[in-house]
Amino acid sequence: MGGMTIAVRCARPEDAEAMAEVFREAGAAGWAHFLPEEELRAEPLRPAVYAAGISAPETRVFVAEDPSSDRVAGFALWRPPTDPAAPCDEAELHLFYVHPGHWGDGTARVLMDAVLRSMRSEGRRRATLWTAEPNHRPRAFYRREGWEPDGGRRSKTRNGITFTELRYALDL
């Protein structure tokens, strides 16, 4: 990591714009092999989506900050499961994005550690997340961090392209 220290903190409303930018950059770089990059880059930023997540009482939102620039390097949002059949001690990692400029530098690991600590501190015993099957880089990261596919599959359509999402789970 070359001496870089990433700080993770709870997200604040003023982080919403930077979170929207991280989402767009990570999506355009990470999904271009199966979704049209020009359409991903042309999508409007939606800071209101992230502001709503930050202010919702049931969610926990974290940002990873690069102290050398005070810029948001990544963010994560976890929440109680949306599946009514899920156990109440489960958590869903709903959003987890790192700016491509920070891929491979340890930012994702530091952010994931903070998220899992938060889940455990609130009594969660299992966590799940959904990721696109063609999302090879994040899937490899999740596997390195101990997440395993649990057999859950669903279909998702974005930018007119339909693909399969896989559910990963981690015992906390």
Results as ranks from 00 to 15, higher is better:
Gly3Trp: 04
Met4Ile: 11
Thr5Phe: 02
Ile6Cys: 10
Val8Asn: 00
Ala11Arg: 07
Ala11Asn: 01
Asp15Trp: 04
Ala16Gln: 09
Glu17Lys: 07
Met19Ala: 05
Met19Glu: 12
Ala20Val: 06
Glu21Trp: 02
Val22Pro: 04
Phe23Lys: 09
Ala28Ile: 06
Ala29Phe: 03
Trp31Gln: 09
Leu35Asp: 05
Pro36Cys: 09
Glu39Thr: 12
Pro44Ile: 09
Leu45Val: 09
Pro47Tyr: 02
Ala48Tyr: 01
Ala51Arg: 12
Gly53Met: 14
Ser55His: 01
Pro57Ser: 13
Glu58Trp: 07
Glu58Thr: 12
Val61Ala: 13
Ala64Ser: 02
Ala64Asp: 03
Asp66Leu: 01
Val72Pro: 01
Ala73Trp: 01
Gly74Lys: 09
Gly74Met: 04
Ala76Cys: 10
Leu77Gly: 11
Trp78Thr: 08
Pro80Gln: 12
Thr82Ser: 15
Thr82Val: 15
Asp83Pro: 05
Asp83Ile: 13
Ala85His: 10
Pro87Gly: 14
Cys88Pro: 15
Asp89Cys: 05
Glu90Tyr: 10
Ala91Ile: 01
Ala91Thr: 08
Tyr97Trp: 14
Tyr97Lys: 05
Gly101Trp: 09
Trp103Leu: 05
Arg109Gly: 11
Arg109Met: 09
Val110Gly: 00
Val115Ser: 01
Val115Ile: 07
Val115Ala: 10
Gly123His: 12
Arg126Gly: 08
Thr128Met: 10
Thr128Asn: 08
Trp130Lys: 08
Thr131Cys: 15
Ala132Glu: 03
Glu133Asp: 12
Asn135Tyr: 03
Arg139Ile: 12
Arg139Thr: 11
Arg139Gln: 14
Ala140Trp: 07
Phe141Thr: 09
Tyr142Lys: 02
Arg143Tyr: 00
Arg143Trp: 00
Arg143His: 08
Gly146Val: 11
Trp147Pro: 01
Pro149Val: 00
Gly152Ser: 03
Gly152Val: 09
Arg154Pro: 02
Ser155Ile: 05
Lys156Thr: 12
Thr157Gly: 07
Thr157Lys: 10
Thr157Phe: 01
Thr157Asp: 07
Phe163Glu: 07
Phe163Ala: 02
Thr164Tyr: 07
Thr164Pro: 03
Glu165Asp: 14
Arg167Lys: 04
Ala169Lys: 02
